[in-house]
Nucleic acid binder design. Sequence first.
DNA 1: TGGATTGCTGGATAAAAATCAAGTGGGCGG
DNA 2: CCGCCCACTTGATTTTTATCCAGCAATCCA
Lengths: 238, 238
Amino acid sequence: MEEKESPKVNIFWKIPMFEYLDEKELDRLYSMCERETYPKGEYIFFECDQPRKLYVVVSGQVKLLKQSDDGREMILEMAYPGDVFGEEAVFDGQPYPMTAQALDDVELLSISRVDFFSFLRDNPDLALEIIADLAARLREAQNTIRALAMERVEWRIARVLLLLSQRAGSKVDGGVSIELPLTRQDIADMAATTVETAIRVLSNFKKMGLVETVEGKILLKDRDRLESMVKEGCTGQR
Amino acid sequence: MEEKESPKVNIFWKIPMFEYLDEKELDRLYSMCERETYPKGEYIFFECDQPRKLYVVVSGQVKLLKQSDDGREMILEMAYPGDVFGEEAVFDGQPYPMTAQALDDVELLSISRVDFFSFLRDNPDLALEIIADLAARLREAQNTIRALAMERVEWRIARVLLLLSQRAGSKVDGGVSIELPLTRQDIADMAATTVETAIRVLSNFKKMGLVETVEGKILLKDRDRLESMVKEGCTGQR
DNA sequence: TGGATTGCTGGATAAAAATCAAGTGGGCGG
DNA sequence: CCGCCCACTTGATTTTTATCCAGCAATCCA
């Protein structure tokens, strides 16, 4: 997170989409990128903006969200170092389908739409990686739809905690800690509920010995029990 | 819908993903396909099945859904003639993320995963079409998430009606008719609510002069007013 | 033909979660 | 150092929507 020296090629190595490219190609890709920084809270783009760039997170976290007319937010995804965002818009040329906001100070690499397509033309196998990436994103979005459509709040909050712990969790004594500057409001926005409800559910979880709040970070004390309560996918089979 | 003679190449022409392929390639693709038929109500695959095939709808309608453990359903998408389904699983090799069920008697073309990839290798530009297709699907899924997260039932039902009318609507005198064998339960499953609520909302819409039921089909009498009440995307911009 | 099943409807009630309201404590800027 | 703002927390109330129920009409089919 603090490696200010040339991250050059190595930032791309972490990204599944690019991992099979050779060093020469990664260098070329890197040379097409611009480095951008955004302070905490700033917007990177808004829903309905014309797509210009694909972004890669170098450090910090980015919220990808949709807003309602009355100011509420739904967080669709979080992007962490090594994640790519803005694909939908760049790949089909339609406006960005959501807003991107820096959750803390953020460092990004950006590649313009045209540059990316020219790179893609010379690396046809990359298209397969992108397809797999989009397919996985779609799959996850469909799981979210299922959760919103048929599961109650506690379930959705538990799911959010588990997803966060998979992406940004670190093992500490007593469980898994989610190392992110998240507010209760953020949790609520990810689970499609209100702050008050999110707080109530979290304090129930605390009473049940499932989670704990340590120095502002959420600590999952009993990940297994949380997992057994969500158990995603393949439930209603025959 | 009734063209029983060799649909061969021409079924593919309707499909955006394939439309730029030349006749020779379409013929080759067609020769890789198997023709399958399913009677009304039958399942084509279940969530968590191993992915074997990509499907193209020739005639009939297919429901793509997720089930909850207590038997409720959420319809993620409907597939009509010319639509492709099963992509997520075929493209990333993971199990199917949802169940596919014939809504009426259905005729399909299926292409096995391996055959499709070999065809894709010889037609690298097809990958770009697939990327655009997946990006559009993802975008739509995100709109559904937004709807479920922040809009109330009437809004969601109105949205479902509009989406259906775009895909399977035909202009008749007095409005746009949705030419599908849909039950109230199906509508409810698409809007993530219960039959009773769906019925109540629809009968309110009827009182307001927005819709009418004619011979089992839903007729949108005032599409514009419905549209103005949903107004998707770009609301909360700055 | 008649009994059963299925889809549609709407009323009464209950449950889940949102909203409203109020108070706490920590951190930051003046 | 004081006061203000913001995140957090909890209780009380209200709203939305699900659940439970019963009746009706059409269709299937034995």
